[in-house]
Nucleic acid binder design. Structure first.
Lengths: 197, 197
DNA sequence: TAAAAATTAGGACAAATGACCTAGAATCGT
DNA sequence: ACGATTCTAGGTCATTTGTCCTAATTTTTA
């Protein structure tokens, strides 16, 4: 089999295991078993555990990047784009209820470990933050676009954490509705400002 | 030395290490070294790692419970109590920036591990949730008191996670101010309803 | 103070981990 | 077809982990 194919299967499986079980507790053997290869083969593709982590983070970044830019490239308005971002919570609600947010939980773990991959995990936050900031800027929010981006990021993180803690309750749906209402208010507020001009 | 004193030192140190490094990566040896006792002695007080975890969770619950009830027992109004809860973020802002929320990060880790201590960690959320619900009820919010409690819990969790990701920015202060403004709005909304009666 | 109980120290042990090595198998270019 | 490169398998190794045991020491009790 081509090396790239095996490598991708490893990264895909590691990505899932890091998400579902955590990075630290997932061992070489765990990933190898899921992929169906030997540990020795594993080591041919990734010489250290940190290398796998880097590859997983890179994969997650690319995946999220493509998703976000896909929304921009389609004919969605900035506001619709942000609504789509909020909608991620519902799209992945089953996984989020079971394992929390893939971005937030990975970052928290690496932060505690003081792991060199920590900055990479923060880059995932940066990706969303900057993208959201640009959407708010496109909505006419120059000054507080970044603050709005951080706010909606934080709301999403909190909703994911609580949904993980109380998976059997319709909390996530309620919170998403409130976030969309908040977005409406922000957009309306902007329209008012426009009228004043 | 009295057994209870040694035991308490163990729980105190384990509490800190579980918070700063995480539960899974903290070993018996780590805790024993910090406390300054032998691993053998350690085993006399706690026969399994899960027993320490239970003791740490119990300690955290008691500590938070006392803090919350202390606010209630003082002459703070329900609204002031909730404001004090929000203020925790600023009171512990240094630790939160470094290690995240002690409640949320522990819960997330145990949830991923499918650890038997998971429900105990959820009990910490329950403690805050029920206390907040009672405060909102005391503010005259019968119907949506629990939803408001969940909302403020989620906001706090999100704020803590993002503050952990961006520790060098004044984000936490901004978010706390917004949460207090939200609380004002909720209280004002209630006053309006009162007037209508 | 002497016996009994409680507490501590330090070592032992199997299992698991990340890392590494070498030899065989598959694939490819020529 | 055949040598060279790429890929894979399985084993080895030192270290760390949670758990457990026994002997020594301290504290309590009578």
């Amino acid at each position: 089999m081509a090396a790239s194919a095996t490598r991708e299967k490893i990264v895909t499986s590691a990505d899932r295991l890091f998400y579902e079980r955590g990075f630290e507790v997932t061992s070489f053997a765990d990933v190898a078993e899921v992929v169906g290869i030997s540990r020795g083969n594993f080591y041919y593709h990734f010489r250290t555990k940190d290398e796998i982590l880097d590859a997983v983070i890179e994969r997650r970044i690319k995946q999220r990047h493509d998703m976000l830019e896909g929304w921009v490239d389609s004919d969605q308005s900035p506001k619709q784009c942000i609504a789509s971002f909020i909608g991620i919570l519902l799209m992945n609600n089953k996984k989020i209820r079971s394992f929390g947010c893939p971005v937030g939980t990975l970052f928290s773990e690496l932060a505690k470990l003081n792991h060199p991959g920590g900055p990479g995990a923060r880059a995932l936050f940066d990706l969303f933050r900057i993208w959201l900031r640009h959407r708010f800027e496109a909505m006419g929010r120059g000054a507080d676009a970044d603050a709005l981006a951080m706010h909606i990021l934080a709301r999403s993180q909190g909703a994911a954490t609580l949904a993980n803690a109380y998976p059997d309750e319709p909390f996530l749906e309620t919170e998403v509705a409130q976030m969309l209402a908040w977005l409406d208010a922000v957009a309306g507020q902007q329209k008012q400002t426009d009228k004043e001009d």
